[in-house]
Each structure stands twice: as C-alpha cells, then as structure tokens.
Design a protein around this nucleic acid. Structure first.
Length: 895
RNA sequence: GGGCGGUUAGCUCAGUGGUAGAGCGUCUGUCUUACAAACAGAUGGUCGGGGGUUCGAAUCCCUCACCGCCCACCA
C-alpha cells in the first residue's frame, strides 16, 4: 500500500498486498460485531468445518459466498456479524485419527479411550488452527473474537440442556432394533450416513429339507453367511406351492437346527423360489417379520464383523471369509442348488466405506415421526418462513421431513459428547427405567437417588450438536443479548449433501428451543467437481488445495473465479493444476491484474490533480463521461440486484464486463487524449469518481486488491468518511442515473471506431492516414464530427472527415453509414483479396436479410407479432438492404 | 423402482418466446506513453436426437438417449 503507484510493478503481486491489508483490518478489529441500535443487521453463523483436515475448495466456495454477501451487507449499512467456528466432527475425525495412528500400527484399542481421545485433541488443535488461518487467507471478514468450537464448554452445556429437555419430554428412548452397524468404527450410524450402491453379486439357492424327510424348500439369498442365524423360512400365504406345509419344521443345513416354515406377506411369490430365509438379527425386514411371528433372534455376527460364538465352526472368521467357507460346505454337502448373478444394493459407511452390517443392537433414539418438533419444521418451510434457494430444494426437504423416521443418536465412538445418561448399577440395561438423564454427575445422583451409577459409554451423533449451532454460538441458553439482536440469522449456506444431516435438524432445533426458525434463507450452492464431473475427494486424489491456488494467483482471483461460477446451478467443474497453471483461476488473476493496472493509470494521472472534489456524482457534459456514468449506474444496479437474489455469478460477470470492456477498453482509452486539453480537470474528476465507485462495487468479491488501491486513491477516505473501503457505502445512488441518450450516441462512436479498425486490419493499412465517414443520417455525422478527436485517437487515423472521399479507397458499411479509407497502390492481388472479403460479407448479409424478409412477408407474423418486433424487423431489413447495396457498388467499382 | 439437475463454439460456461453470447484456445497484426497476465482484428455453433405448440422455439410441451445427483427394506 504505497502512495507511489507509479513505482509499483506493472504486475499485481497479491502475496504482499493481501497479507498487509488483512493485518490492518485485524489490527483495527474491523470484523468485530456487537449488538447496537442499528435496526438493520445481518448475521451468518458459518457452517463450522470439521477439524478432520485442511479446507478444500468446497469450503473456499462456501466461505467466499458468505463473506461476499456479508461484506455487501456491511457496506450497505448493516450491523454485520459473521460468526466462525469449527466442529469436532465426531465419526469423521475419529476416522482420520484412527487412520493416522494406523501408520504406527496402532488401533484405538491399543491406546485406550483416554489416550486416544488425547490424540484426537492434538489433531483438533492442529487442524482447527489450520482451518481458521485458511479462512483468514481467503479474506473472510469474520468476527474471530467469537470463534466457537463444538467442544467448548458453553457449547457443551447447551447440548446437555437440550438433551435433558428432550429426554424429559419423552423424545429420547431406548430401542433394541436393527441398526446400520459399521464394523470398522464399531458403532451404529443413521440411514443418511450410509452410502448405497449397486454391486454385482450372486443369488444363492439353498436347499432346506423338511425334518420329517418329506421333501425340501429351496430358499434364495445373497448373504448365505447369515443362514446360521435363521430362525424360520417364510413363504407367501397365497403361494400354492407351499399349501398345507406351513408350520412344518425344516432342518437348517450345516447347523442342523430345526426352524419352522411360516407364512408371511413379505415373501414375494415371484422372486427367487418364493421362499425366503428369515434372519431377524441381521436384516431389518426379517426383524420385523420376526416380531410379527414371534421368532427368536440369533446373532451370529459380532460388532467387529466376525462370526461369533453362535456361528459354531465358523466362529472367529470374518463375515466374508465365512461366506466363502459356508458356500463350499453347502456345495460339498449337496445343499447348494444353484448360483446366479444378481445385482444388489450394498450399503457402506460414508466415512470408511466398510460394508454396513445390519445388526440387532441397543441404541438411543430421538423420536421424530409425528412429533411437534417435526411438524413445526415442516410448517416453517411450507409457509416460506424458511426460504430455499434454488426453490426446488423446498420440495426435496419437505418430502424428506414428511417421511422421517426416528433418529438413532447414540454412537459407540470415543470422540464426541458423551451422552448425559447414567445407569443405576445392577439396573437392566434394556430397561429405560434403569437410566436417568442429567447434565452433571451430581444431578444424576440426585435424580437416581444413589451414587452407585455409571455414565453410559456412548457418545452423541455429531449432528446432534451441530443442530444447535445457530443459537448455541450466540449464547443460548445463558445469555440472550446477542440472540435478541442476531437471531434468527439471515442465511445458511451449504452444499446439498448436508441438507438432511444438518439443515433439517437445525430447523427442528431452532423451532423447538427458540420457538423460531434459525435462519431466513437456505442457499444450497454448487458442489465442486473435477474435470470429469466427479466429486473431489481425498481418496480419489482429484482434489485441489485452495491454498495452492491462492499462492499461485491470490485470494481475490480465487474468490472472483468461485463467484463467477456460483450461480444457482448444481455444480462447478474445475480443471486440475497442470504445469503450475490453472486456466480458470488464471483468468481471474488476469482480471486482478487489469484492475491493478487500470488503477495505476488513474493514479498516475490523478497524482498531480486536485483531490477528488466532493462526494457527489459529477454531472459532466462530455458524451463519453455521460456514457461511462450511465454504464456505472447500470452496473451498480445489476450488481446490487444480483447480490440480493443470490445470483452472485451475474454480479461477477457484470463487473468484469463493465470494468474491462467499458471502463478500460473504451473509457480509459478515450480519456488519454482528453487529459491534455481544456476539459482535463473534468475528465480526471470523472475518471477518479468512476474508479472509486467501481472499487466499492468490486470489494465484496475482491476485498484485498480493492482495499489496497482505494487506500491510495487521493481523497477517497475523506469523501467516504471512513478509513477503509470495507466500510464505504455500497453504491445505490447510481441506480437512477441511467442516460439512455448518451448510451445510444456513444454506441455510434464505438461502431464507427470498430469499423475503421476493422477496415484497417483487414486491409493491413498503416495507421495514420485519413479516414472518411459517410453518414446515412445527418445526426450520425454530427456525432462523429463532435467526437472526431476521440475516434482519431482510438483508431490512430488522422484526420477523420465527414463526407465522401476522392480517389482509390477501401471501406465497409455499418449501421450508421459507411467508412472509407484511402488505399495507396493496390496490387491486383490485393484487389482480389478485397473482392473475396466483400463477397463473403455480402453472403453473410444476404443470409440475414433473407431471414428477415421471410418473416416480414409472412402475413401472420406481421399480424400477430408485437408491433415493436415488426418495426424492428422492418428497419433491420432496410438497413441490411442499404449495406448490401453499398457492398455491391463497391464490388462493381473494383471491376 | 421413483424424483431432480444437466446436455449451447475445440474447452469452461452465460442466455426462460423475436432468429445465439463471453472468457480461454486457434489464426493475423501491434512494444498505441496502465497492463504482452496486454491491445486491435478474425475464425469458430443445423443450441444432444425426434415430435408437438406458436407467425416465430436454445427458451414452452411430449418422447428418447447420454452424464450426474438424491431417495427407496424385494431376499
């Protein structure tokens, strides 16, 4: 940040600028937010990243969106709080640490619960810090003094209060049922933590003989190893094949246990053999069938995924190994009838990809179906209290909520919030009456009436604690000063993968405990994919580290790139970094460089000039000044609207187009000659004004470079009444300043300029010669005449004359007339080349013309189309015809 | 098995009824006193296929194909 921009390099160096700017913001506590009497406030509690590792591009996108909107709101006069934090990450973090200690050939059981938890804590410290630093690198204007972590004491207290209340209200109950069991983590997980995928498998047909020797029943199964736990075989009651045999005993092969043949609707007659083996302890359907038919349960697979003592000869072997052995034995003993290929949906743990084992187990559940908590959360979406963007997610959310099943909340993990549940010694573990829920041991003893109690080992599902994020971070339940001011928060920004896991549960918790939704808008943003359209992930090794991109191109470039892609679409495809380059972000870096250099130019010219007048918009009389102010006005409007409707890509595009095309390629170019003449002062004032306003518009997306330049702009701080661009008012006053007339007139100047350049380039004419413009209407000629000095500068022609030209020329008609340039010494070859060009142009014209004429000769078009459209077509036709005539004349003159 | 999103220039993507755009790439020029990470110009598309509605369809409707995502307890 130097006042001597002319001494600065011609290339923008983000590394030094970004660090310096951020340090100043931090030193002045610019991100600090506390409640005040400002009626406008904006609050986001950021989705706390899991402390599993460093941030990925998805986080960069997520946080750039929030920071951009937050900065926009802050500049728009809102008391803005963006509250950062991290999540302990439960099973995810336990997973990565288990993998980490595996490198030392250790398991969590080797370390024991206490030592393992300590390891995870070290991990959490390390990555928690890394994450927060990465967010700072990205430029996030978050209130770091409020940083929260889900294992912080006040946060844990909030969880305990919530749990106790839910328990007392009867939401939480003990259940003994089939759950998704991950044998790697040795814990239950919920349905939404299971990934399902079709895999090629086999359907095995196995013979189960009747005990009395009167034949047999053949069952079909994909999981023969579970047969050891079979307690029945079921057929459909309507199935004629088994009529009269219901109730008879079958002998279970290999184990030689007798099990009954039962009738139950769940057996489909047309699948397999119509007979299904029933294993209540290892299949949810079978479990229900078992309950209906009062069947015993036999667990044959243990928590570690190995066959247990009930598996007889197979005890101790892994479930997949057991499958192989059982098939061999069945085959050898003549029980295996046939094996056919079969596609099967296999569930895997979404963290470790281990195949899920449906296992009968004792778990704690949170009641969902039909509860007030759920209906309130449904109502909030249905009456649009909570708005979903894109809108289609509303239906997705509602469908899910309406079919919600109870939520298993206990986890047999070591990392997380231990459940505040105590069991009286000697109490039946299957009986809920043996337990008390209490926040502390003292309270538990009091409730239990004895000190002889023991806290349950299980921890809470990590999403149970995340559900409280929007209010537990704002002081609930102890203090309500922040809650009163900042709650409900304004938005929740996330990728779609945690819509159910997290978003739905926050809405329920907010409604239940605060009596109010946690946020107004749920904005589901894109997912970042690799160049082949696959999700980025560590295991695939196709991820890109955002820090690598920041180091290559700077945070502003990364932010701009992400915002330019952050439409209401589903995903963003990114190419990998190759040979030290990433094309997409490089383009954004080039934009940063453009901003840098345009600003250098302005500062060079403004240096000697007086400070930028007052804060009001200048009212110049020169066409190009009026035009750029009108374009600034249009851009300010587009950008404001786009931010307000979460169309961040529209904002990014509009800014790029305005800055590069309008401001740099036309306005600055046209400004150069004007700095010499008599209108120099006004020209400089407008240049300074437009640049300053544009920096404000750009700032939410590209905070570093804009702040750095703005600091060096003479008069900017004084006029804005703040020492920082990040607090300068976001331009809204520009909105009503469109100047249609100036835009139309400048378009004529542009068109003449383009045509001259075109003729120059196509004919490879040297710059410097005179040019002629023959207007098709006198008004066009007048505009060309007034702006001749600019056109001359922009095309390097000299001079520009209005009217016809003597001698040998080349030229091209355009919408406003015709441009002609003298052509000295044309060779036969050159003439042939020009003929070819003109013929090509003519063909293009004619094609266009025939389309328009075709429409106009269609009576129903003229009759039914809006008059404006018809009129436009007519003038288009006339215009095309005139240009065609000119081209033909030209062609004729070349003969 | 249901539902959703996508398919537009070589690549990445804009464009929701008036006859298709941007950036990158490619080609041709240019050190024009902010920028070669730049400037000027050019090249490039029967808008996935088919059908329909309409004076008119990339855009609305139907259908098919392919890619991706979500949901679902047929062994």
């Amino acid at each position: 940040m130097s006042d001597h921009f002319q001494e600065l390099p011609t290339r923008y160096d983000p590394a030094t600028t970004e660090t310096a700017v951020y340090e100043r913001w931090l030193a002045d506590r610019c991100f600090r937010a506390v409640p005040d009497d400002n009626p406008k406030r904006y609050c986001i509690t950021i989705p706390p990243p899991n402390i599993t590792g460093a941030l990925h591009l998805g986080h960069a996108l997520n946080n750039t969106i929030m920071d951009t909107l937050g900065r926009w709101k802050r500049m728009s006069g809102h008391n803005t709080l963006i509250l950062p934090g991290t999540d302990h990450g439960g099973i995810s973090t336990q997973s990565v640490v288990e993998r980490d200690i595996a490198k030392e050939k250790l398991t969590r059981y080797d370390l024991g619960r206490e030592a393992f938890t300590e390891r995870v804590n070290q991990w959490a410290d390390q990555y928690g810090n890394t994450i927060l630093n990465q967010l700072k690198r990205l430029g996030c204007s978050y209130d770091w003094e409020r940083t929260r972590y889900t294992l912080d004491e006040p946060y844990v207290d909030a969880i305990m209060v919530v749990f106790e209340r839910l328990y007392e209200q009867g939401y939480i109950y003990l259940g003994y049922r089939i759950v998704n069991w991950c044998p790697f983590h040795r814990t239950a997980i919920s349905d939404i933590e299971v990934e399902r995928e079709d895999e090629q498998s086999f359907l095995y047909h196995i013979r189960y003989p009747f005990a009395d020797g009167s034949g047999e029943v053949t069952v079909a199964t994909t999981r023969p190893e579970t047969m050891l736990g079979d307690t029945a075989v079921a057929v459909n009651p309507k199935d004629p094949r088994y009529e009269g045999r219901i109730g008879k005993a079958l002998v279970l092969p290999l184990v030689h246990r007798e099990i009954p043949l039962i009738a139950d609707d769940f057996a489909e007659m047309d699948f397999g053999t119509g007979a299904v083996k029933v294993t209540p302890a290892h299949d949810p359907n079978d479990f229900e069938a078992g309950v209906r038919n009062h069947l015993p349960t036999v667990i044959v697979i243990g928590p570690d995924g190995r066959m247990n003592e009930n598996a007889g000869a197979y005890a101790g072997s892994d479930r997949f190994e057991a499958r192989k052995r059982i098939l061999e034995d069945l085959e050898a003993q003549g029980y295996l009838v046939k094996t056919e290929p079969h596609t099967k949906s296999v569930g895997r743990c979404d963290r470790c990809k281990t195949v899920i084992e449906p296992l009968l187990s004792r778990q704690w559940f949170c009641r969902m179906t039909g509860t007030p908590m759920v209906s309130k959360a449904i109502a909030a979406a249905r009456n649009d209290e909570v708005r979903f963007l894109p809108g289609r997610y509303r239906e997705i959310y509602l469908t899910w909520m309406e079919n919600l099943r109870d939520w298993p909340i206990s986890r047999q993990l070591w990392w997380g919030h231990r459940m505040p549940l105590w069991r009286k010694s000697g109490g039946d573990p299957d009986d809920q009456a043996s337990y008390v829920a209490a926040r502390t041991r003292e309270q538990a003893e009091e409730k239990a009436g004895t000190a002889d109690i023991e806290q349950v080992e299980d921890v809470l599902d990590t999403w149970f604690s995340s559900a409280l994020w929007p209010f537990a971070t704002l002081g609930w339940p102890d203090s309500d000063a922040d809650l009163k001011y900042y709650y409900p928060t304004n938005g929740l920004f996330t990728a779609q993968e945690i819509l159910y896991l997290w978003v739905a549960r926050m809405i329920m918790a907010g409604e239940e405990f605060l009596g109010e939704k946690p946020f107004d808008d749920v904005y589901i943003h894109a997912t970042i994919l690799d160049e082949h359209g696959r999700r980025m992930s560590k295991s695939k090794g196709n991820g890109i580290d955002p820090l690598d991109l920041i180091e290559l191109y700077g945070a502003d470039a990364l932010r701009y790139f992400l915002m330019s892609q952050a439409g209401l679409r589903q995903d963003i495809r990114m190419k990998p970094i190759k040979d030290g380059r990433q094309e997409q972000v490089e383009q954004a870096r080039n934009f940063c460089n453009k901003i840098w250099n345009a600003s250098r130019f302005a500062l060079l010219n403004l240096e000697g000039a007086a400070p930028m007048g007052d804060n009001r918009q200048p009212t110049p009389t020169t066409l190009v000044d009026r035009w750029i102010l009108s374009r600034l006005s249009a851009t300010a409007e587009t950008v404001g609207d786009a931010f307000g409707t979460y169309n961040l890509d529209d904002a990014a595009r509009a800014l790029y187009q305005f800055f590069w095309d309008d401001f740099c390629d036309w306005y600055i170019e046209a400004a150069k000659p004007r700095f010499q003449g008599e209108g120099a002062a006004e020209a400089k004032a407008v240049l300074g004004y437009v640049l300053e306003r544009t920096l404000r518009l750009l700032h939410p997306i590209m905070p570093f470079i804009t702040e750095a330049i703005w600091q060096a702009l003479p008069g900017a701080k004084a006029n804005a009444g703040t020492g920082y661009l990040m607090f300068a008012a976001f331009p809204t006053g520009e909105v009503a300043r469109r100047d249609e007339e100036a835009e139309a007139e400048w378009e004529i100047v542009q068109e003449i300029t383009r045509t001259i350049r075109n003729v120059q380039a196509e004919n490879q004419l040297k710059k410097g010669g005179e040019a002629y413009f023959i207007p098709s209407e006198p008004g066009f000629g007048e505009i060309a005449r007034v702006n001749a000095p600019l056109i001359e500068f922009l095309t390097r022609c000299s001079p520009l004359a209005i009217g016809d030209v003597p001698g040998e020329t080349v030229g091209m008609p355009n919408r406003y007339g015709e441009v002609r340039l003298p052509r000295p010494r044309a060779s036969a070859e050159e003439i042939a080349q020009e003929r070819a060009r003109i013929e090509k142009e003519l063909a293009k014209l004619e094609k266009e013309l025939s389309g328009v004429v075709g429409r106009l000769s269609n009576e129903s078009f003229v009759a039914s189309a809006p008059p404006a459209v018809v009129e436009k077509a007519r003038s288009q036709a006339a215009d095309l015809q005139e240009r065609g005539t000119k081209l033909r004349d030209r062609l004729a003159s070349l003969e």
